[in-house]
Design a protein around this nucleic acid. Structure first.
Lengths: 233, 233
DNA sequence: CCAAAAGTGTTAGACATACACCCATGT
DNA sequence: ACATGGGTGTATGTCTAACACTTTTGG
């Protein structure tokens, strides 16, 4: 009973990669040019290497696809239904990544046949990847309400209206500009860079950057950017 | 690259089981009477069966040890360090369970050489089980602040002071009786059973039970039982 | 009758919301 | 000049924290 059995189950990693283009939350998905399920859409994934840990594996896969290191990655959940992969019993550890969409290596993405797809128009995904994505979206909503992870989706220097648009995209609700701004500045996490952005068609907005030290200290403090009306959902 | 490799990694399950005895939060741990690490303390675990999913596996292991079904179980995180098990590369999916300590099957627990150990006096655990427990405690604190999972650790009928002692044990802080009681009753989740408890040495407290229907509906609403002073930590 | 624990009430302050208003910029 | 979007101010109501007081029970 307590002996070690022969390994018979594969261990895989799948990555859910969120980005924000200033308007919509997008997912980095691949159109598979390999078997199984060739031609269909799926998350980026791979099998766990014998000589790597789970987070190393996730970093490797994310690096291969995006060319990025040091991005925000969290382990989300492990999926292990007996029938989830019809070819071979596989347990998949799902990771959740947030990246700044401008920074990614477009060549690497192209070579993997991947594209940024907005959440609403995403195609049907293979296996249980659809369920993984649903869980990740829930997690994003849940976590962004309490922790300042929203910053991970924006460039280093960003404006408050940008951040607001991000939160509006996550929760799909309008947020009051003035209250949002005040709530945000009161955290003391934003540093005024003194610069203004120039892409806006009207008044230039102040560019802030994150106070990384305080950000790490305060990460576990419970924020609440959701209006109370959403708390019921 | 995209071929299926030979399985070479084992998939295991470990369970962190919390209980509450009215005073302290306790963990159900086993003193191993089998190899490896015979004689040392560890979490209850086992290998994933070829024909079961992850949550089925966790339920099986929990049932074997406690004789209980339908208990509160959540998948916590998967541990996959290359060196975590010295005998054989093993990835372990850790589950988090809350049980009513009075309900468990004492025979089954004894036969597995298991005991309820309070968090403070727990022995050193094997492998990375120590880290798993630390994560689970964090998760308990985090989750209990927002969701009413505290109820899962109490008997079906319980008093508000009991629940308060539970929260005080989780966060290791004193809580104001009056504010706690009002906050709790205002949720509408408690049903007055009309009964009073009799074990108290002084005034008898009202026994409540959970409104299960509302409980399920409201589960995802964000509660906050932690006083604001704790929000910084 | 007293001690100890349960239950109820009250008040001041903090916070969030919902607004109105002013400022800067490109056309 | 004016439309568009960014930034600041303020009042109102709700919620919380910090209190005092009463009630019930066992010894």
């Amino acid at each position: 009973m307590h002996n070690y059995p022969e390994p018979s189950i594969l261990v895989a990693i799948d990555c859910i990669i969120f980005g924000f283009d200033g308007k919509d939350i997008k997912l980095l998905l691949i159109k598979r040019n390999f078997e199984p399920e060739k031609g269909k859409w799926s998350l980026m994934g791979g099998f766990l290497d014998k000589e790597e840990g789970l987070s190393e594996g996730a970093s490797r896969i994310l690096y291969n696809l995006t060319g990025l290191k040091d991005i925000y990655v969290e382990q989300l959940e492990t999926f292990g239904c007996v029938v989830r992969d019809p070819v071979q019993r596989t347990v998949s550890v799902v990771f959740f990544a947030l990246i700044q969409i401008e920074d990614h290596d477009t060549e690497a993405v192209k070579s993997h046949n991947a594209s940024w797809i907005s959440l609403e128009c995403r195609p049907r995904l293979i296996f249980d990847h659809e369920e993984m994505v649903r869980l990740a979206i829930e997690h994003l909503k849940y976590k962004a309400a309490l922790h300042p992870i929203g910053f991970e989706l924006l460039p280093e220097r960003f404006t408050i209206p940008q951040l607001q648009k991000l939160y509006e995209a996550i929760y799909n609700i309008p947020i009051d500009r003035r209250n949002f701004s005040r709530k945000l500045l009161s955290t003391g996490l934003l540093i005024d860079t003194g610069q203004k952005n120039n892409n806006g068609a009207t008044k230039k907005a102040t560019l802030y950057r994150l106070d990384s030290i305080r950000y790490k200290e305060k990460f576990h403090s419970f924020w609440n950017f959701m209006p109370d009306s959403m708390k019921q959902a």
